[in-house]
Design a protein around this nucleic acid. Structure first.
Length: 1011
RNA sequence: GGGUGCUUAGCUCAGUCGGAAGAGCGUCGCCUUUACACGGCGAAGGUCGUGGGUUCGAACCCCUCAGCACCCACCA
């Protein structure tokens, strides 16, 4: 439960447990052989070799001393770097599936064997991993997303596509810089103490040290990405792409530098883009302030939520049609606390109905006021420093005050002057930085921008004309909505960690852009004597992310990978970064590759907790996917959830809630169960609530598969079976193949439509409800039948193996580990070569042609068995007791089926003998199967009163249905207008019901002749 | 203010073409049946948010209202 989580140290426990189990088993077997309880055959050292092969030998160097009976074992261990097929039978499987015994070793083997690399020459299939922050660790959103991508990748790889899952990490400018600054802070240092170069070195060191966490966690998820192609957005190659794009856009005039009002984070001291600002509703005040008229004829009242910005006011505005203020337009007012006057202007921006109908205009500190200021040619008076303290443009009394303090001082001073008209409570949307949570200031600075309109236009067109398709489709509306209202993108950040802007300044202030300083110099014809200073700013992280689909493939070089895999097949991501990332990739891809970056965008939902809340550290409701895989005990879980909180006072509440919800901690479910749960929740892009009940159910499903395979392996023996030739097998064999074909169609349709839930459901139902509940039980009948021929039994065994083997392949994309483990054992018995399931062919429905006749017969057989079982359950007959069964009537088909199915019925319904009778006896209990009436003689077993109730209830149900159908058929419009097919169906239904009611009623009369 | 979703069994959710309302979990019986108690067999449980419309027929299409969620936005 509390295994080392750090994936960098190999997990000792699981392989050692396996080894111990193998040794234990060998000792037991040897003991049994000595005592003559077991034949000596079937136990030889190679099995043990296979059991330990693939384990990193280093593990044994660190392991406790091996048991004394195994001196030769060390010789048997081979380096895992040369994985081989396990082509010899292994010892019997454990009774309960244990994911830990297999998962990590299987993954290491795949990776070492190079199975994740693109193979073959077939059509390419490529997915770009949305690069996680290099500082990050895996959360539920990643785990969900990665499961879906890996399922697609494995599904296509098995179909023979030349499949590439391109992976890598993002340098995450602000986030990473903040983490390292915090660490410096703990040591009493700061980035300013270090200076830029040493700070950037420190970030690289930190990345080298702890940047690999998420890569290791992705491996735990079974993600089959091509690690040999792993990229980082700050790599040389990707940095070169960033520079290239910047220079080319600048050359075309699509990147420019200018003094604009931008979103300024006064804590991080950097500009941020519109998208990085989140507006949160907060309780504030609306201050009504009197501005005296210059001519002494009174005052106007303006309403504001930010009284301190008064110091930067450039005008007071009213609506041009507002009758109350017509006389004021053109006059001047004395700005309180400041020694200057400002004009009263008219602008339609003002809403006369809000506040007093007069607005103070502060062009340097409000986006609307900026626009008004431009229209009226007002001065832009900046009153803040970079830290949002009052600067020297304001009256001396306020200089140096923080904006919060300045507000208090301004309000107090206004009050003292009697200029506060009133103060109302007011709810307002406060802009905050998504990283720092600081209140964002509109702030006038020099920044770099991308002129976005020329890029947006083709990006809109390619979604309109279907070159890119959103799934679900309605997300394209969101995309259009944003793209049609898009503003220029501020791409410069006043940070140290990121791609440095390739622009240089000459002493005269001129700007020179180039791929290198040398190129910039050459382009501008500057001599070596002109000193140049490079721009201090770095680029928005999303600038490099926008290039990800081609920069990772080698652009601007013309590489074979770029040629092969661009445009990529599908992008799998959450709706939250459609604007941040998806839209920008589309714009950049079209601009620089001349084609879309991907053909489809699958948007998945957000993973929420069981109560529907967003998971967040501060709420203490985070689930760690690794904890679901490995399990975690209560105390460590409480510890994780309550440490490092922004508000430590929440800890007791969170601890209590956690103890209530997870009284016994979280059990270990394994990766496959987690993945299957995600897949089953992946419906049409809706948010998903993560419910532990689901994952437990799918853990049980793993165990079901494990045990079904265990049964099949036990039944078949240890030698490969001879091929069965063209023999189709008996009824049950034809039927299960028919059902497999149907299931495969459903599974593939699901994957092809990104309906992972439907695929998961189809394969779950096939394996559990059809294969396990019915086919294995039917197979047992033949295998246990002493009169059945060896040829028939061989066919049954062969079918068990073949169907299970195909089902494992079908399931592999969702459950890679258990399917690999079992397939290696199953496939060799079929004489299949191959050292892994992951490169086998995905099963095709066409290989299992439909057999409607077998399906009809088994459906009838099931009805018979279910009917008898129901009688048994409702009459409280002991399950073990064999009961006699009489059969009356039935169609010609049914009579033939009865003969063929008699052994199945006897076994599955626990019937001692079947007897065909011309008339029902009075003391029998009844069930119907098609036109056949099933009768179980009461004898002393059944209470006639109970049986009469049962029949009456069934009759009532049928009569209700008959009434509904009859009403429909009595409606002339229905008969006239509904398709003949539907009408006939209803007619047959009415006839069947009438017949069934008839038969049940006559039985009821026999049961109580007086009633 | 604009936009997008959602509302189906106690809970979480499917329901594809408009043609008998489904699954998992939970609940209630019975069962140590030789793959599996992480199991088997059986059962109960729904006026498909409200009101209208279209249709022979509506969970599904159209409109109204109610509740919930999310996104975008410059009401000081």
């Amino acid at each position: 439960m509390t295994e080392p989580r750090d994936a960098k140290t190999p997990d000792l426990d699981a392989p050692l447990a396996r080894l111990a189990e193998a040794l234990d088993e060998r000792h037991r077997a040897q003991d049994e052989i000595v005592r003559g309880l077991r034949p000596p055959a079937g136990l030889s050292p190679p099995k043990l070799i296979d059991r330990v092969r693939g384990i990193d030998p280093a593990i044994f160097l660190r392991a406790p001393a091996l048991p004394p009976t195994t001196p030769a074992l060390a010789d048997l261990i081979q380096p895992s770097a040369t994985p081989e097929a396990t082509m010899t039978p292994e010892p019997a499987l454990a009774k309960t599936y244990d994911p830990h015994a297999i998962e990590q070793a299987r993954y290491a083997r795949w990776e070492a064997a190079g199975h994740f690399k693109p193979q073959g020459r077939d059509a390419p299939y490529c997915i770009m991993l949305p690069p996680p922050n290099v500082t990050g660790s895996l959360h539920m959103g990643h785990a969900f997303q990665d499961t879906l991508m890996d399922a697609l990748i494995r599904y296509h790889r098995m179909q023979g596509f030349r499949t590439l899952w391109q992976c890598g990490t993002d340098h995450a400018g602000i986030a990473t810089q903040m983490v390292v600054e915090r660490q410096l802070g703990l040591k009493g240092s700061s980035r300013h103490d270090l200076g830029r170069d040493r700070f950037v070195d420190a970030v690289w060191d930190w990345k080298a040290e702890s940047g690999g966490t998420i890569s290791q966690q992705l491996r735990r998820m079974g993600a089959s990405m091509d690690w040999s192609r792993e990229r980082f957005t700050m790599d040389d190659g990707l940095s070169a792409a960033v520079t290239e794009v910047f220079v080319r856009l600048h050359e075309e005039g699509l990147i420019y530098r200018g003094k604009r009002l931008v979103n300024w984070d006064p804590v991080l001291n950097t500009a941020i883009s519109d998208l990085e600002v989140v507006a949160t509703e907060e309780q504030g005040h609306l201050w009504h302030i009197r501005y005296p008229l210059e001519d002494g004829s009174g005052y106007v009242v303006v309403a504001t939520t930010r009284p301190e910005t008064l110091l930067g006011d450039a005008a007071v505005a009213v609506h041009p049609d507002d009758e109350r203020y017509q006389a004021l337009i053109g006059k001047r007012v004395a700005l309180p606390l400041c020694d200057r006057t400002i004009p009263v202007i008219a602008d339609t921006y003002v809403d006369p109905a809000f506040g007093s109908g007069c607005v103070k205009i502060t062009p340097a500190h409000d986006f609307n006021d900026y626009a008004v200021g431009e229209r009226h040619d007002l001065p832009k008076i900046n009153i803040f420093t970079d830290n949002a303290a009052i600067n020297d443009a304001a009256p001396a009394a306020y200089r140096g005050l923080d904006r919060v303090v300045a507000r208090q001082r301004v309000v107090a001073d206004l009050e003292a002057l009697g200029l506060i008209d009133k103060i109302d409570p007011h709810k307002l949307m406060v802009p905050r930085g998504d990283r720092s949570q600081a209140v964002i200031e509109p702030y006038l600075t020099d920044q770099w921008f991308v002129r976005i309109a020329p890029l947006a236009e083709p990006a809109i067109a390619c979604v309109e004309d279907g070159r890119i398709r959103f799934v679900p489709e309605n997300w394209s509306k969101t995309y259009f909505e944003w793209m049609r209202n898009i503003e220029d993108w501020c791409i410069s950040r006043q940070l140290w960690w990121g791609h440095r802007i390739p622009a240089w300044y000459a002493p005269d202030g001129s700007i020179h852009v180039g791929r290198t300083e040398r190129e910039a110099r050459a382009k501008s014809g500057l001599g070596a004597d002109v000193p140049l200073r490079q721009d201090e700013d770095v680029l928005d992280t999303w600038f490099s992310s926008a290039l990800w689909p081609f920069s990772t493939l080698g652009w601007p070089e013309k590489t074979p990978e770029l040629e092969t895999f661009y445009p990529t097949s599908v992008l799998v991501t959450g709706f939250d970064i459609i604007f941040f990332w998806v839209a920008r990739m589309i714009m950049m891809g079209l601009k620089f590759m001349g084609d879309v970056p991907f053909h489809e965008v699958y948007i998945h939902g957000l993973v929420r907790d069981a109560d529907g809340n967003k998971m967040s550290k501060s709420k203490g409701n985070i689930l760690d996917p690794i904890d679901l895989i490995d399990g975690i005990e209560l105390e460590p879980l409480v510890g994780k959830r309550t440490s490092g909180l922004m508000r430590p006072e929440d800890a007791p509440k969170i601890a209590a809630a956690t103890r209530r919800q997870f009284a016994d901690g979280i059990p270990s479910y394994g990766t496959d169960a987690l993945r299957f749960t995600f897949a089953s929740m992946a419906t049409q892009g809706r948010d998903v609530r993560f419910d532990l009940g689901r994952i437990e159910g799918y853990r049980n499903f793993c165990n079901k598969i494990w045990n079904a395979s265990r049964y099949v392996l036990m039944t078949v023996g240890s030698e490969p079976l001879p091929a069965s030739g063209n023999a189709r097998g008996g009824l049950a064999e034809r039927w299960i193949r028919h059902r497999l074909g149907q299931a495969l169609t459903a599974v593939r349709d699901g994957f092809d439509a990104y309906r992972f839930d439907l695929s998961a459901q189809a394969i779950y139902e096939f394996i559990w409800d059809e294969f396990c509940d019915w086919y294995i039980e039917l197979a047992k009948v033949t295998l246990n039948d002493s009169t059945a021929s060896e040829a028939d039994k061989l066919l049954v065994r062969r079918t068990l193996l073949e169907v299970l083997e195909a089902a494992l392949r079908a399931l592999h994309p969702l459950m890679p580990f258990i399917t690999e483990e079992l397939w290696l054992k199953i496939a060799q018995l079929l004489g299949k070569a191959g050292d892994t399931i992951m490169t086998q062919t995905y099963p095709r429905a066409a290989e299992y042609p439909l057999d409607p006749k077998a399906a009809a017969e088994v459906d009838w057989l099931k009805t018979v068995v279910l009917g008898v079982r129901r009688i048994r359950a409702e009459s409280n007959l002991e399950p073990a007791r064999r009961i006699p069964l009489q059969v009356k009537g039935g169609s010609a088909d049914e009579q033939q089926w009865l003969d063929e199915c008699a052994p199945f019925i006897q076994q599955l319904a626990r019937v001692e003998r079947i007897e065909r009778v011309p008339h029902a006896r009075s003391d029998a209990t009844t069930a119907l199967a098609g036109e056949t009436t099933l009768l179980v003689p009461l004898m002393d077993l059944i209470d006639p009163a109970v049986e009469a109730d049962r029949l009456a209830k069934e009759i009532a149900r049928l009569e209700q249905d008959l009434a509904r159908v009859s009403a429909k058929l009595a409606n002339d419009s229905f008969v006239a207008r509904a398709p003949a097919e539907v009408v006939n169906k209803e007619r047959k239904r009415a006839a069947d019901n009438t017949d069934a009611i008839d038969r049940l009623q006559s039985q009821l009369r026999r049961l109580r002749p007086d009633g």
